[in-house]
């Protein structure tokens, strides 16, 4: 204990100097990282902003660490030599992590999705929060946090639900054989026309998708903006129920 106090007393100026430099450098690095993230996100995309911010942060922290080690008297050349051997050992042990990193680079280059896109991977659907070195983070619609390793994403089928600005809504309706198809078609088309969020073009369509044992299977197809998909689905389903009841159309 006395030895440590003596050591601190002998190197008080060095310690103060290092602390001041670390505090200022860290603050500056964090500030710069956030500024660049905001700027790049505005100009390009949230994903590039995230990557730029992280590069600046990690680079700044690395330089800071090298500075502290040099001030503490460590010989960096010897340290790098040891790091090489340790790195080799770690590399063998962390093949999965390396695979995830490589997969992450491919994801960034290929851009199948970006931050804020809604993607489905397997049974998980959520909003992309970040695309990191090892994994992609999603927020599901019921607010769960899901971490998916990059390697899994590269190997799986990924559906990007929000890549294109418009989406088609498919509503399956089974009606009794006794019903008049033309009348149903007119009713459904009228419902779509009266719903302002449904596009007039591409035109809504009703197709006879199949003839099953006890019903005719119709498919009601409408187009809308991707952001209005749920609203339109809700509105149309309610209206179909009301109109079918009013017009005595039997649904199976």
């Amino acid at each position: 204990m006395n030895g440590i106090i003596l050591l601190i007393k002998e190197n008080i100026f060095l310690i103060v100097k290092v602390v001041i430099i670390v505090v200022f450098s860290l603050s500056f690095t964090i500030w710069l990282s956030r500024l660049m993230r905001k700027t790049v996100s505005k100009k390009y995309s949230a994903q590039y902003g995230l990557i730029t911010g992280k590069i600046i942060l990690y680079t700044g922290l690395t330089f800071l660490l090298i500075f502290i080690l040099r001030q503490a008297g460590f010989k960096l050349s010897a340290l790098l030599g040891a790091a090489g051997i340790v790195g080799l050992a770690i590399g063998f042990a962390s093949q999965t992590s390396v695979s995830n990193i490589i997969s992450g680079l491919f994801l960034i280059a290929e851009r199948p999705f970006e931050v804020n896109d809604v993607i489905s991977v397997g049974s998980v659907t959520g909003v992309v929060l970040s695309i990191d070195m090892l994994s992609v983070k999603l927020r599901t619609f019921d607010n769960k946090y899901v971490r998916i390793p990059n390697e899994k994403i590269i190997k799986s089928e990924v559906t990007n639900n929000t890549r294109f600005p418009i989406r088609r809504l498919d509503i399956g309706i089974k009606v009794a054989y006794k019903e008049n198809l033309e009348r149903i078609r007119k009713t459904l088309t009228d419902i779509a026309e009266k719903e302002p969020l449904c596009f007039n073009e591409p035109e809504p369509s009703v197709i006879l998708n199949g003839l099953s044992g006890s019903s005719m299977d119709l498919l009601f197809l409408v187009w809308t903006q991707k952001s209005d998909l749920l609203k339109v689905k809700n509105a149309l389903m309610e209206e179909i129920k009301k109109r079918f009841e009013k017009e005595n159309i039997a649904v199976k």
Binding site: F164, P165, I166, E195, P196, L197, F199, N200, E201, Q225
Partner: peptide, 11 residues
């Protein structure tokens, strides 16, 4: 009513 002018990917 809303409508779309363009194609499936942009418009």
């Amino acid at each position: 009513s809303n409508t779309w002018f363009g194609n499936f990917e942009s418009g």
